[in-house]
Design a protein around this nucleic acid. Structure first.
Lengths: 215, 215
DNA sequence: ACGCTACTTATACACTTGCATAACAACGCC
DNA sequence: GGCGTTGTTATGCAAGTGTATAAGTAGCGT
């Protein structure tokens, strides 16, 4: 009778393990969808046993939320970086913002899979629903502010409702192109989505975002 | 000892039962998300017992696919109706097509919830993935054909790549606005999304879709 | 009215899930 | 180097899942 020898293991720092578990969760969701992200599958991918998850997170729900927060963080990080370009003029910042949201690492099947999984349960889970609405409105507000700056610098003041509609439309363009890129990225040339997005916004606002800016 | 009396039931026609089960599935998905659509929950909502499902469908998977097909059918039905307007000119048909995709019953939380649930598992399930890609390309081809007609009628021939990019952009606008409407329909006025969509496409194509057409 | 068919119910089963708990061992400290 | 702390494993459990199967009965043909 073979006495089952207990598995060897190493102790990792708390921060490291948490990050590993989150990354393993993202991998599982990306490969097998949200229902495929079971505690056992996540643990196996992280190289630990299932029970350990509950040593770092109150429950599976919290781990998923942490993973979702991680993804959202990475996405907004790119967008924020584009917005923070204080040196450039408004038009160039808008173009950079669009390009940042329509290329890697924002356009990615893993990101999309997690997004779809959470969004699908959004209106079943009220907490998730409001979190998402807030994220959406925040994003749209940023777009609206950016558009306002651009038009103002152009000497073309726009009314509140017009500004709102522009923000809604641009947000839709970003979302739509993002989804197309995530679902079928292989049928687009690299940078093509960003080009299309910028060109469409240019047509919408009736100006050239790539032209050299005049101080 | 109370002898459990067997539950009363009525026999329904095959078509009726199948439709009821599909409708019950849609309700469950809409209210509790895809994971909430268990065979027992579906059966309860349909007013039958769980075992009956397997009398009309080989398994749960097939029932879900039938429900998904039902939703897709209802969505494309609207779009096709707009396309079939042979009497009207190309510009009016494009506007109608846009409006049809950006209002009820296409813009609906139930539809979206089911869409999100399926799309989330899309790249885990190859069969689902190709089905979706085909649906997307079909839809985009329709958009492209419509745009081609409009530009042609205007005497503005466009190159193949330009046509393709227009179709991608318009498709993105539809998708993006559709999502916004489904997720937060209450913050938009009725018809506002359609207005924004049409206005954005007008800007993109540099023409007026609502102006009276000249024969 | 009676049987037959197949639609419907009821029960059971194998499996998976998240979670609880106890045994264990790796690492730091003295 | 021994020891305690606690990160980690191993095992078990109750609940829920889809599915299989047998029993029952509603409604139709005759």
């Amino acid at each position: 009778m073979t006495a089952h020898s207990r598995r060897k293991f190493r102790r990792e720092g708390e921060e490291r393990r948490r990050q590993d578990l989150i990354e393993a969760t993202l991998d599982c969701v990306a490969e097998r969808g949200l229902p495929g992200a079971t505690v056992r599958a996540i643990a196996q991918r992280a190289g630990v046993t299932a029970g350990l998850i509950r040593h770092y997170f109150p429950g599976k729900e919290e781990l998923l939320q942490a993973a979702y927060a991680e993804i959202v963080g990475r996405m907004t990080e790119q967008a924020k970086a584009a917005l923070a370009m204080e040196g450039a003029g408004p038009r160039r910042r808008l173009a950079t913002f669009l390009a940042a949201n329509l290329g890697p690492p924002v356009v990615d099947t893993r990101v999309f899979s997690l997004w779809a999984g959470f969004i699908g349960r959004a209106h079943a889970d009220p907490a998730l629903s409001v979190a998402h609405r807030e994220g959406y409105l925040d994003f749209r507000d940023e777009v609206e502010a950016l558009v306002a700056e651009v038009l103002e610098a152009e000497g073309r003041a726009a009314g509140k409702t017009q500004l709102r509609r522009h923000a809604i439309a641009i947000n839709a363009i970003i979302d739509g192109l993002w989804i197309e890129g995530c679902l079928a990225g292989d049928i687009f040339e690299p940078g093509e989505l960003a080009d299309i997005g910028i060109a469409t916004v240019e047509a919408l606002l009736e100006l050239d975002l790539r032209e050299e800016e005049k101080t």
